[in-house]
Design a protein around this nucleic acid. Structure first.
Lengths: 230, 230
DNA sequence: ACAAAAGTGTTAGGCCTACACCCATGA
DNA sequence: TCATGGGTGTAGGCCTAACACTTTTGT
């Protein structure tokens, strides 16, 4: 049976698209794209996304996409915009609600379905389907702004990381360079890092100190109003 | 003729809602609400809003609502979120794209249509229809964040204003108090204010200095990356 | 032995904060 | 004349930004 949904006024279709960010020192901030198998934009790369079910809200839909592509059931996910240009999809009027997800690449197994999914460094993405290049630019800009208010960087790193790793991540997102010593002391002063203790006392200066993100201290900090100063 | 729009899959309805903010010293930050004349939520207050046409994008729809309620054709308007909870509208599945508009109250004539529209101080709004109370909270929170990056305060003041007026506006939005002297020097140091010159040289200290927002200086400032430090 | 990676401390300048007095006006 | 509103400057502390050397490891 076809064509069974009938409305008195025209309705647009609504999708949720999920810009999945990951990070690794060697290639910086990356985004997970899937190659479209069907028209339109067949063989173009695009964000995972799909129509929102009538019994799920947009975030639920985005999480569903995220799980299909990365296997992750829990991840940091946040809405950052809605794209409603009239002709952004050649088939019909489609409005998309856009989310970004921040995932630890180490926890991502290959996508569940056989989709052709790959990570691309954000400064080297191929041509994208629909208006996804614009969506990506907005996502990156939003990250840059929100990192001043939320410790989103930690969502992209393993649970335990080193100061240089953290610094490179910040530099990747903000596209700037920091002085090593200043970055380190500023970060430590915030008081949201816990030194992970299994470091031999006589460890050589070449062996980095391992830290983890201290969620309790962060919760404290948040209550008193703050800004991450970078 | 009824029921002529037919789809293979169910489609939600999509609206654009417009949270219109205005400001006046006496009652602080206010929001323009209209009293609903029809069910559901008849006689409740709500934001101006309505279904998005198939040939307009969401911002165009929001501007249309804005014009109907305030007569303003140009105003600062910005999308801040999308609300898609499944049962937020009892009639059918409705997803709304939410905008805030910042208007100069002095330029607002009463709404064009006879709708029952009134300004309410944001800290004293009546019960709202649908999930509009939540939308309002998100709008206010977004304002607080974005004021660090964009000089949105000036959209709410007359073209010419005094330093105390500007300070009170900032205090209204951020819900904090600043020291008069510090606020003033910080603002002036930014270099985006122009002293409006028709002040008699021997003006008494009781007569405040008038300023206007200097768009050119701001454009300069923006290029070099910055933050409004409050 | 040399290059690369990581740790660490100091200083100068700028920014932030807190704070007090003067002048003019209107009641 | 008194309260109110507005203008202005300074001093201390904190933060920022700039900067160099040492240790260790791997080649």
């Amino acid at each position: 049976m076809e064509s069974q949904y009938v409305y008195k006024y025209p309705h647009p279709a609504v999708t949720a698209d999920c810009v999945i960010f990951g990070y690794e020192p060697k290639d910086g901030l990356s985004v997970l794209l899937i190659k479209r198998g069907i028209e339109p934009f067949k063989d173009c790369w695009a964000f995972p996304g799909g129509f929102i079910g009538m019994d799920e809200d947009a975030e639920t839909g985005a999480r569903r996409e995220l799980k299909e592509e990365t296997g992750l059931e829990t991840a940091y996910i946040e809405q950052f915009g809605c794209f409603s240009e009239v002709n952004r999809d050649p088939r019909e009027r489609v409005i998309t609600i856009a989310f970004y997800a921040l995932v630890k690449k180490s926890e991502v197994k290959g996508g569940d379905d056989a989709a052709d999914a790959h990570w691309f460094p954000v400064d080297n993405v191929p041509a994208l389907a629909f208006d996804h290049d614009r969506i990506l630019r907005v996502a990156l800009q939003t990250l840059k702004e929100r990192i001043h208010f939320k410790p989103i960087g930690f969502e992209l790193l393993p649970d335990v990381f080193t100061m240089p790793q953290l610094q490179e991540l910040y530099q990747s997102i903000l596209e700037v360079k920091f002085d090593r010593r200043n970055f380190s002391s500023k970060m430590l002063k915030l008081g949201i890092l816990t030194e992970v203790g299994d470091r031999p006392k006589d460890a050589g200066s070449r062996i980095p100190i391992m830290y983890s993100f201290n969620l309790e201290s962060y919760a404290e900090l948040k209550k008193s109003g703050f800004r991450l100063e970078f």
